[in-house]
Design a binder for these strands. Sequence first.
DNA 1: ACCATAACTTGCGAAACGCAAGTGACTGAG
DNA 2: CTCAGTCACTTGCGTTTCGCAAGTTATGGT
Lengths: 118, 118
Amino acid sequence: MGSTMKFKRSSCPITNVLDTLGDKWTLLVIRDLVLGKRRYQEFTSSPEKIASNILADRLKKLETGGLVTRHAYQRNPVRYEYLLTEKGEGLKPVLEAIIVWGKKHYPGSKRFPRVEQH
Amino acid sequence: MGSTMKFKRSSCPITNVLDTLGDKWTLLVIRDLVLGKRRYQEFTSSPEKIASNILADRLKKLETGGLVTRHAYQRNPVRYEYLLTEKGEGLKPVLEAIIVWGKKHYPGSKRFPRVEQH
DNA sequence: ACCATAACTTGCGAAACGCAAGTGACTGAG
DNA sequence: CTCAGTCACTTGCGTTTCGCAAGTTATGGT
């Protein structure tokens, strides 16, 4: 009796992905991380202007889900940065497929450039 | 002055895709359509048990967005079926990429089989 | 002491969601 | 010809989530 695995809604892989990434903001945070952003303020300064509480919530959920790690990059005062785990990096092909479809059907849209590291 | 295209949130293709597909249900309707489902009751009988009002709303939005077409497959009484347009079919690579990542990170999840046509 | 910065948290009104039940147009059974 | 049944929705309503603004905590710089 280990065969009854508990999924939130169904055993469909798409469904399970949507249960963690299915909203208007989570994938944008992933996008920012892929583009090289790491710090809280960098995420809030993206053009979509994510609200602070939504960002905090999404980062927490992504960390819980193992897509992102948080660690202090300095003490006094403590400052944190976020990095994609291998699991999180694995979403790059999904983002690529979305960009291909998006650029085709939203004329004028353009992939954002990587940010330079500090 | 045609250069100032109006996007909901930003010119990022991912953002624009999320503005139409960024929720827990829309992509599941697309999945069902890709699997061969066409009628209202077929969608509501999927294991995720989408609520009727949510389904009606999503189908309407997908039709407005040009991803889906609706047409009567019989009269007396009128019955409708939904089909993916070419634009909607274009999402298959996105679904494939999601399935690949999903199967890897949600052990036990399994792609659903196509439904037979009536 | 005072201002600034980073990373959050809190409050609250507005919008979206989810469940149940209802509606209208018919069809086939008795 | 009445009545249960099917299909494709719509309506009501309570709960949850969202989104904007403002507040908080810790610390450094001058």
